[in-house]
Every structure is written in C-alpha cells, then in structure tokens.
C-alpha cells in the first residue's frame, strides 16, 4: 500500500520561523537599519531634524575640533583604562582568594556578584550620595573627628573621572571575579600538584601555570569590560551628569547631548559612528581569534 505524502506545511514546521521572525525583523531594522541611518546622517548637516544635505566628512572635522568631545575621549581613555585594569586585577585576586576552599563561599560569591544585578543608574545614585562632600564619606570622617579630612573628588574637575572609576569597578569587578572563578575551577588540580612538586611556590604557580591557562577568560573579560566602558552613559548621567561643567563627559553622553538636546544630529551621529568604530576595533580581533580558535581545537 502506498500512502501519498504530499508536502504539507503544518504549524509545527512554521512555528520556529514564526517565533524567530519578529526578533530578526527588529534586529535588522532597529540595530543594523539605524546603524546605517546614523552613518548616513553623520555625513549630512542635520541639525534638529534629519536632513539629507550631504557635507562629506565635515561633521567629523567639527567633532575632532570640539573641545568637549576631546575631553570626553580623554575621559574615556582614562576611565576605560583604569576601569578595565582595576576590574581585572581585583577580579583575579578575589577569584584566587575565593578558590582556596573557604567556608560560605556561595554566600560570599553572591555578595560580590550582586552589584552586577542592579542598574548603573542605581549604582550612580548610591555613589553620588557616598561621595558627596557635604553628606557622604567626607562628612562621616569629619564627624568622626578627622577635621582636616577632605574628599571632594566628585566636585573636583580634575578628579571626577576617578569617581566614575570607583563606582564602575564596584559594580563590575564581582562579575569578573565570577568569570575567573569559573576558569580557575576548570584548571586541572594535577597541574597545581605538578607545579608544587617541581618546586614552584604559590605565587609562581599562579603566575606561570594557572593564569596563563586562563588566557581565554582574560580575553572575554577584556572585551566585556571594554564595551561596558565605551557605552557607559547611565553611570555618568546618574553620578555626575557630566559635571562639573563637562569635565566628566564620556562619548555616549556627548552623543546624547548633541543629538537629542542640542539639535546637532549630524555631529551626534558622527560621534556615535566613532564609538561604533571603537567597539568594532575591539570586537573584530576577538571574534577573529575565537573563530580561529574553534578551528584549531
């Protein structure tokens, strides 16, 4: 007996595609579509509303002659460098300490990881209170009797970027710790025993054997931290709002201010494209090494 199985498209066949379709459309339009649109706008003289008067690269020229943008870029360099460096160091150290088979490890891990669960707005607000000279840390120390104590970084244009670093490190280093802890757990215990027998001390064992084998974790952590740094907007908005003056601006704040509040869509778009360039400069080598790595292993 032959049953004729005509190709029938049942709901089951279509369901995966149907479910995925909105995501694909949204991603295509809202991510890549607007990315391209921003790129186009950055080449125009758009001000309050988009216009299509192409002016070549003159918006970029204006951008790199703009003092506020240069301050924002310099801040990004300082903030990003310190934030990434301190987070990595703290994360590694915390992870190593937590990996010494201590009691209540689960609880401690959660405490360190918890800041990651709250938004940068909350972090920024909380640290704004803590760092505020008139009612925060400085007041507490003075109340404790240290009359000479001053801690005015939040209102000092030369130091305000370090406040951003403190808050951002507080938020992200626990997460980096979790990444490294997972990596450390994957290290073969025999390796450490072998190093001990070979005569390496604890420090040397970590420096020469354990940490080098965590290179992929370092790389992932670096990429995650770098793009957090580049896209940082809400932290600045909540903690300093770019001030004093524009001394704590980051590129994202510059972009937002010019595009949406100062009617400089063309200039804002140009700054957004420069930020995209920064992200890609980090992501492309990362993806390249990841994909190449997969082929080798």
């Amino acid at each position: 007996m032959i049953t004729k199985n005509a190709p029938r498209f049942t709901l089951a066949d279509w369901l995966p595609k149907l479910v995925m379709a909105p995501t694909v459309v949204v991603t295509l339009v809202c991510m890549y579509g607007y990315m391209i649109w921003t790129g186009v706008l950055s080449l125009t003289n758009s001000r309050m509303l988009p216009s299509y008067d192409f002016v070549g690269l003159s918006q970029y020229e204006r951008l790199f002659n703009n003092d506020r943008w240069l301050v924002a870029l310099a801040n990004l360099g300082l903030f990003g460098g310190l934030f990434i460096g301190i987070c990595l160091c703290l994360g590694v150290i915390l992870a190593i300490f937590l990996d010494q088979k201590i009691r209540n490890e689960g609880a401690i891990r959660t405490i360190y990881l918890y800041p990651m669960a709250i938004s940068f707005i909350v972090t920024g607000t909380a640290w704004k209170w803590l760092l505020n000279p008139t009612n925060g840390l400085e007041k507490m120390m003075i109340d404790l009797g240290f009359e000479q104590f001053t801690f005015d970084w939040l209102v000092n244009p030369d130091k305000v970027v370090y406040c951003l670093v403190i808050a951002a490190v507080w938020q992200a280093s626990g997460f980096i710790m979790a990444l490294f802890l997972a990596g450390l757990r994957g290290v073969d215990g025999d390796l450490i025993k072998a190093a001990q027998l070979d005569g390496a001390g604890t420090f040397t064992t970590y420096r020469r054997i354990v940490l080098p084998s965590l290179k992929p974790v370092f790389f992932s952590a670096l990429v995650i931290l770098a793009h957090i740094a580049i896209k940082s907007f809400d932290l600045v908005a909540a903690l300093t709002n770019g001030g004093p003056g524009y001394s704590s601006d980051l590129p994202a704040n510059f972009m937002y201010a010019h595009t949406f509040t100062r009617s400089q869509i063309g200039l804002g778009s140009a700054s957004a494209i420069v930020m995209l360039g920064c992200v890609l400069a980090i992501l492309i080598p990362y993806l390249y090494s990841e994909l190449r790595g997969q082929r080798h292993d």
Partner: peptide, 10 residues
C-alpha cells in the same frame, strides 16, 4: 608522573 600527565598547557 600523573595519570592526566598534568603538562603545563601554555
């Protein structure tokens, strides 16, 4: 000499 060899991978 370990069962897993424990060679330093890097």
């Amino acid at each position: 000499v370990f069962q897993s060899y424990a060679l330093y991978p890097n």
